[in-house]
Design a protein around this nucleic acid. Sequence first.
DNA 1: TGTTGCGTTGACGTCAGCGTCAACCCATAG
DNA 2: CTATGGGTTGACGCTGACGTCAACGCAACA
Lengths: 151, 151
Amino acid sequence: MRIGELAKRAGTTTRTLRYYESRGLLTVARDAHGHRTFGEDDLRVLRQIRTLRENGFELEETRPFVECLRAGHPAGDSCPDSLEVYRRKLAELDACMAELRSVRDEVAGRLARAEVEAAAGSPHGPEPRCELSPPGPSPDTPQGRQGAEGP
Amino acid sequence: MRIGELAKRAGTTTRTLRYYESRGLLTVARDAHGHRTFGEDDLRVLRQIRTLRENGFELEETRPFVECLRAGHPAGDSCPDSLEVYRRKLAELDACMAELRSVRDEVAGRLARAEVEAAAGSPHGPEPRCELSPPGPSPDTPQGRQGAEGP
DNA sequence: TGTTGCGTTGACGTCAGCGTCAACCCATAG
DNA sequence: CTATGGGTTGACGCTGACGTCAACGCAACA
């Protein structure tokens, strides 16, 4: 199997595969023409990586799973290092959710107070300029899974 | 007040202030030497920006608050545009938390299953020996089992 | 007179994970 | 012969919010 077919089968692109190779996540053999050749095991590795990436794992965090598979284990998470990544990720997710909750409460509080002020000041205060623009082309791209973090 | 003092008072750096100016968030006067000069109102604007940034607002999202302050309002969130940003942010936070929760459950499930497998296999001592195809033209890889793949 | 310390502008570096050319090679089909 | 459709490498772009120089000007202090 060559890189185009593998990319299609894994639902990704050739650019991505070459990038993974450059990161050392894929070890690639070449044929007589210098073309990369892959086997079914590479597809498994790739699927493992994609699954993790879709769950918000960074590329580097997939390395233990890849090495676990390459060591001949039936699944990428059959090894202690992979489990450790799972646990770290869980803790990370919990921390992130806690922070998001606190920020959410903070923002909700500010909004509530500001709305009260606005209601109190509205009859006499500054006139509301423009109401919010109608729900036009605002493509809400759900990309951020752990985005609202600082340093 | 010059840029160094303002940066210190706002707990940030001169680079940051110049960056904000380049984004049009700070309108800056110059003295005879070409040095930027700031007043207390600039400090207020800056504090508003920093507070929002610390709560995960993007720089561009702080613009309505800045303009609100510059329009002479007592607080940055005294204007409808600012409130709308608050509301959008709340929705965004809620969506993000929901996604994090689902990912968290997914990962927790995988960890639990993998730990069960590990506990079952550990007493017997799993021997991973078979390796995947190393660099070389042999795409034929006899592999006995397949691991559990998620949805 | 030098040194320190503040200011200025401009430009490149950083982090992740690729997308998007460009310029080329190679094989097969019409 | 050429068009098409693979493959190869290399290099730049993109997103955000700055950090980190470089090379300079200007003022005060000893």
